[in-house]
Design a protein around this nucleic acid. Sequence first.
DNA 1: TATTTTGTAGCTGCTCGAGCTAAAATGAAC
DNA 2: GTTCATTTTAGCTCGAGCAGCTACAAAATA
Lengths: 241, 241
Amino acid sequence: MNTDKTMIEHLTEEYELITEGLKQFGLTEYQAKSYIALVAHGVADAETIASTANLPRTSVYKSLDSLHEMGYIAVSKGWPRIYRPAEPLEVKGRLIRQLEEVFGRLNIIYQVLSEKGEPQVIYTIHGSEKVLGKIREMVRKTQEEFVISTPEFTHILNQLEHDLQSALMRGVEITIITAPGEKVLEHASVERRDGLIATDIISDKKRALLASPGLEACGYTNNPSLASHLINFMVYLMREG
Amino acid sequence: MNTDKTMIEHLTEEYELITEGLKQFGLTEYQAKSYIALVAHGVADAETIASTANLPRTSVYKSLDSLHEMGYIAVSKGWPRIYRPAEPLEVKGRLIRQLEEVFGRLNIIYQVLSEKGEPQVIYTIHGSEKVLGKIREMVRKTQEEFVISTPEFTHILNQLEHDLQSALMRGVEITIITAPGEKVLEHASVERRDGLIATDIISDKKRALLASPGLEACGYTNNPSLASHLINFMVYLMREG
DNA sequence: TATTTTGTAGCTGCTCGAGCTAAAATGAAC
DNA sequence: GTTCATTTTAGCTCGAGCAGCTACAAAATA
């Protein structure tokens, strides 16, 4: 019967295993312990949970409140309040749905990029100088078509006039969508719009850049499938607007 | 084209959504951002991740190290080190398996107790006085059979002799499993064993108590199905030992 | 050897949960 | 209706762990 210890240890282990597991999925220690204790009782008041899980009574109210907000448990209106756990399988279902959601999104990104297996496809650039530098690089690399939509084309033109001119010279077709009153380029097709906020650039349908107002930060990709994905999105939005 | 903002916002939102989602499942902010950036690149070095996710370069090493330990990413041996993400679906699979495990265990507890829908089935009691009080209560409630396995029966006997005697008087069959040299009761069946550590008590096959050494804490249940579950476990262990 | 790039160590400060104390709200007892 | 016990809220301190740095060591390149 020296297996006695194994028995109580088995239960303690089980309890700690579940506690740790729940902590992995976003519960604090008190929340995990409270929830397990409540599941073990089926129905209980705060006092019962506190003594079962060996937690400070006043802290248990906080855990139970937060568990209720998270949908792990139900609370009666009476006095004293009586708590019931949501069915473990129901909670599990919710968590799995969240997992599907998050990793589904991640997987889309992963799939798009692994189609071609190209490394170094997405950049994020911070600081308006670096962003302008990236835009200059894009202009220079463009061979056929350059589309830019920005509320502050004047500023960009001042910085990049030389590069834009030489692009025109070598036959690049430039389309500018900008606000009324902004200075533009000759020999480029121009469209005037109000309400522009961010800067979007697409070059040769295979490089795309999206910059925040003031060019503080931007995202950039040279992945053709991702770029065309963004183009589709943009076209869709233009039709709607 | 005032939907421009929607476009970059859409991406930012997506990014933050995934970040928050991953944080829900146990990643820190840096870990989440690093992992997303790495998924977006497919392959990258630390510097790339840092500038993409806009994180301090030196901190990224820590995030990437921990992500590697958690199995979210793979690391090359070369110099500089090159990182690759584990496939999102693979990571998802692992997490789902963890969920199944944890909530499977919880559900067993839930099922056992909801069979009868009995509330207040499990108690945890702390402090040796309270534990002894609970044992006394069990002795008094016993009508037919009382089995106790403990290394320190002398101590318990000193405290509960009167209650145990009166149980014998009313015809209760008492079985004592304890260490050699411990004082026991007349008219009870006694078994001597070495290596006892914890105290286990089963009363009328429907109440069970498991106490830690020194009676510091114990678990108690009056749920018949749970108690018989524990009995089976005990019997199984006794056969093995 | 000098210089840049890559990686390590370790600090500060902040957030948030654990663990309390005090006191308010609610209901029961007299 | 006042007193008492129980339940619930509010808010405090303390410590762990993470964000965000600096300084420096190690490796590669010139």
